[in-house]
């Protein structure tokens, strides 16, 4: 029975299942009515009409691994920020100053990344 505090999350879990079932059921329905005539040409990888050269899983340059690292830093900051945002009014100046220092350090890190020119998309 979905009740109480954790009951809310039971509802959300049930909706995740409902969404999954919806997609699966529609794909199944589509399977009943759609044609299925696979040919070799149809199953080749699409490369604007010409035969594919090499493999799709080729080495590729992930240009933004530094961005991704910075993202993790700032997303963790957000995790701290939300609880703070609710209570800082009661805690007063001390909590505010702490957050100023915290954000200041992160801003310095961002500035450092800009100065080191790692935030350039080559």
């Amino acid at each position: 029975m979905p009740e109480g505090y954790f009951g809310q999350y039971v509802t959300i879990g049930i909706f995740a299942i409902v969404g999954t079932v919806l997609v699966a059921a529609t794909l199944q329905l589509s399977r009943l009515v759609r044609p299925n005539h696979p040919t070799t040409a149809k199953l080749t990888t699409y490369e604007s009409g010409i035969d594919p050269i090499g493999h799709g899983w080729s080495q590729s340059n992930v240009r933004y691994y530094i961005f991704a690292l910075l993202f993790v830093v700032f997303d963790v900051e957000a995790v701290f920020l939300f609880p703070w945002a609710i209570v800082f009014e009661e805690l007063g100046t001390a909590a505010f100053v702490e957050m100023v220092i915290f954000i200041g350090i992160l801003a310095l890190a961002l500035l450092y990344a800009v100065k080191k020119r790692v935030l350039e998309w080559l």
Binding site: V62, F71, D75, A78, L81
Partner: peptide, 25 residues
């Protein structure tokens, strides 16, 4: 296993993480 798809996914990954932060903040 398609080159266009791979490029698109890598671009999407970079863009979605970059713009999630302004939304969160």
């Amino acid at each position: 296993a398609n080159k266009y798809a791979l490029i698109g996914a890598l671009r999407a990954g970079a863009q979605l993480i970059a713009y999630e932060l302004p939304i969160v903040l």
